[in-house]
Design a binder for these strands. Sequence first.
RNA 1: CUGCCCGUAGCUCAAUUGGAUAGAGCACCAGCCUUCUAAGCUGGGGGUUACAGGUUCGAUCCCUGUCGGGCAGGCCA
Length: 591
Amino acid sequence: MTRPYLDPKTHLTELFTLALARIAPDAGLAIELERPKQASHGDWACNAAMQLARSLKRNPRQVAGELLANLPVSDLIDKTEIAGPGFINVFLKPAALQSLAAHILEQGVHFGRVNLGRGARIQVEFVSANPTGPLHVGHGRGAAYGASLANILTQAGYAVEREYYVNDAGRQMDILALSTWLRYLGLCGEFVPFPPNAYQGDYVKLMAESVFSLHAERYKRTAAQVLEGVPGIPSAEEYAQRPDLKDAAEEALDALIVAAKRLLGPDYAYLHGHALEEQLGDCRNDLTEFGVTFDCWFSERTLHESGLIDRAVAQLRQHGHLYEQDGALWFRSSAFGDEKDRVVRRENGIYTYFAADIAYHLNKFERGYARVIDVWGADHHGYIPRVKGALKAAGADPDRLEVSLVQFAVLYREGQKVPMSTRAGQYVTLRELRAEVGNDAARFFYVLRKSDQHLDFDLDLAKSQSNENPVYYIQYAHARICSVLGAWGGQEADLAEADAGLLVHPMELALLKRLAEYPEMVAAAAREYAPHLIAYYLRDLAADLHGLYTACQFLVEDQALRAARLLLIAATRRVLADGLVLLGVSAPEKM
RNA sequence: CUGCCCGUAGCUCAAUUGGAUAGAGCACCAGCCUUCUAAGCUGGGGGUUACAGGUUCGAUCCCUGUCGGGCAGGCCA
């Protein structure tokens, strides 16, 4: 009934390329077609004439005329015109769009897939928060962004693997284990002053209670034993008022950790492991409920244990980029674009986090990814030159690593900024946010901004069950279509035979045009690591649908027209659902 | 002090990476439910794109400077 769909952009690009070859075979110019912002400028515009004008030393409008004279005829083209300084505007016949609706139904989930990646393996590492407490709303943005980005890259033809780097080896984990133990000792009746720079959260007390109920007093030591040789622990008040006590407090904390390891012996590993498992498990559950999953949870500790860090350091040494000074081992990162040299092994013989990170990234490269994307908080931007520098120094190609920085999210409630302080244990957790606004609104709001922009997260707007909330606007379009299709009661597959030539209403054609943009949007979002493009596209698509909904009745008497319109909205429903999946937002059938 | 990011409508943000008359949402005003979901639609006012120069057919986008905001500058992670 309707002829097979031919992608207009691809088709026009071929035509213009042929015309270009005829008038300027040596121009070395690639034809670029763009969608004009204004409908009066046609469906597609080509700016090649203006770009050629300089090298041909001719008036751009004259060059445009020559291009058009050499353009092969096409039955997709209604008319062309030369406009402005030398744009070529192309107006398509309705038929060029009408066959799209059936094409979308036939393609199913394949519509919107673009083959940018050609199956290349790409890794996205994101969240990677220290498992020392609940995820907060800042991590939530990284989670939503990374998960959507991974979905989009998959859609764009990459073989994507999602990874979470677990910082299970450092001092922060020791502090968590110590914090848990001290709370536990309190339950045993042994009271050691709780350091103000240890983890204050209630989740630490809960872990202590669980250890106590499982093992009673097995890990009990007397307060006197614990405090032996430990310098004074400042009180919370002193610590808050006197910044000069910071170093002393850190020393006391380290002394307590040493005491814990000494007094507990092999049992320390149990407490450490218990705290890690509890927090990592909590984190994993939280993310899973948020629709964020990982293929690999990569343990930092395994880098130490398997000797990969030794190997990475040896690799740098071999290339002559290490030197010793003040008892520490330094990497000459200043020779690779960094501001100054960095320590990889401390005076005390322990590797820095940086050393582990070098080994980690070399390991990523060895695992064979064509590209590795790190999603970091924007506060880590200064860290990029040294990691890339280290990769280069070790003989790897630093351009295979791309770092995507995500800015902070600031919560607003009733127009007021919600205060957040990790130090004081005063922060809104991701779990609390999800409970308050729901997963859909949270996922959507997080990616509604370009990732490198600060995000003002309006809690009242996100949880409002009203027309103010943009996420409902899109979901509502989907639900409305479902409702119409339900009232009709037929099978979607039967609609593919409908006569799409009957779709001539301006709003129908506008909707078809919008649907045709979807694959390009996916490609742009994948190229630019920009999930927000999908969010904005879906809003525009929903707006087109709502407009048509108000302007036209779908379930009309005329059977042919009814089938054509139902075909159109069925195709729209597919694209809406597909885009929402990319963003991790549900597509409800009823609202 | 130095480096990176940002500055667009009253507010929150887009702008196909150099394209044509810079667009949405919220808020404000005026309309639209006897019809498939009004969580919707239609219309209206709102701008020297922080400022000053420069590059060119053409600049919100690139370069220089100024002002304002954020982040970073550990043998922390």
